[in-house]
């Protein structure tokens, strides 16, 4: 009995240690965002919200934030479209070189960002495309497609092909089957793939460096601000805001997938 209690206590300690390891740095940043001093030392002598005011009125931060959101949204939408279409194509069709195509689709995420960045940069220059938000979006879409594709293709593989046959058999046209069967079945895969794509795009630095023109995305601004070292408190504020904002899609995703898990685990199979 005693040993079991001890073991349980040890386990709890371990869990908290891992959580501290994971979230300690983030909590540190949040705490320091309320520190009046711009030199980060403990204990904090004076608390303030003034850095929030500074960040809120900082035109650079605002522009960077808006650009990041725009780019992430556009890249996510493009990735959802192209990624799921590619997944349908590879899953349905039987054509020569299908496995190669599948590998090529996944490759961008394995490539170091710097290679993607340099390659895109030279291509844009060669084609005479000036760097803008659109080049950022194209750059981000290359790796965002992969997560959507992977999610959807995995879901389709786990879905029995007879479901689509059953739908056609019951009189549904191809578009009805897509609307009533395919889409609901891959919906959670699309949501989680889309959220992942959004997150990937939102915090991307390397590819963005090579594809952004004069504009800064938020991560690039943070990167620059840290290097200069003058705006550390403001960086803390921005990071805190981003963490809070990111909680929203994560909670939505957890709710969505949570509902799935619930209906699967609440299975009471009565015998007849």
């Amino acid at each position: 009995m005693k040993r079991r209690l001890l073991a349980r206590g040890g386990l709890w300690l371990w869990v908290w240690a891992v959580l501290a390891f994971l979230f300690g740095p983030i909590i540190t940043i949040v705490i320091f965002s309320f520190d009046r001093s711009n030199i980060e030392t403990l204990p904090i002598r004076s608390w303030t919200l003034s850095w929030y005011q500074v960040a809120w009125h900082d035109e650079q931060v605002r522009q960077a934030f808006v650009l990041s959101i725009k780019a992430a949204c556009a890249a996510t939408v493009l990735a959802l479209l192209l990624g799921s279409l590619a997944a349908f194509g590879v899953h349905r069709a039987r054509f020569f070189g299908r496995d190669t195509v599948s590998l090529l689709l996944v490759l961008p995420i394995a490539l170091p960002g710097i290679i993607t960045g340099v390659a895109l940069n030279s291509t844009f220059q060669w084609a005479g495309i000036s760097l803008s938000i659109w080049t950022i979006i194209i750059g981000h879409t290359t790796f965002c497609i992969v997560v959507v594709y992977n999610n959807v293709v995995a879901r389709l593989r786990r879905t029995s092909a007879t479901l689509f046959e059953a739908s056609a058999d019951l009189g549904a046209s191809t578009s009805q089957t897509f609307r009533f069967v395919t889409l609901p079945l891959i919906a959670t895969a699309l949501v989680s793939g889309g959220l992942l794509a959004f997150a990937l795009s939102f915090d991307e630095v390397i590819v963005t460096t090579f594809t952004a023109g004069a504009q800064n995305t938020l991560p690039i601004w943070i990167f620059g601000a840290i290097r200069l070292g003058q705006q550390l408190p403001e960086v803390n504020v921005v990071v805190t805001a981003v963490v809070v904002l990111m909680l929203i899609p994560i909670i939505i995703a957890a709710r969505l997938t949570g509902r799935d898990t619930f209906s699967a685990s609440s299975t009471r199979a009565p015998t007849n």
Binding site: S160, E165, A166, L170, A172, P184, L185
Partner: peptide, 29 residues
């Protein structure tokens, strides 16, 4: 094509739509 034929199939693995309840499955056609 299959969806224009006046036949219906009972599949070996039943192929019930997992995201629909029993009535929705039966009403689908």
């Amino acid at each position: 094509p299959a969806h224009l034929r006046p036949v219906n199939t009972v599949f070996q693995d039943y192929a019930l739509f997992p995201h629909m309840d029993v009535v929705a499955n039966v009403e689908y056609g």
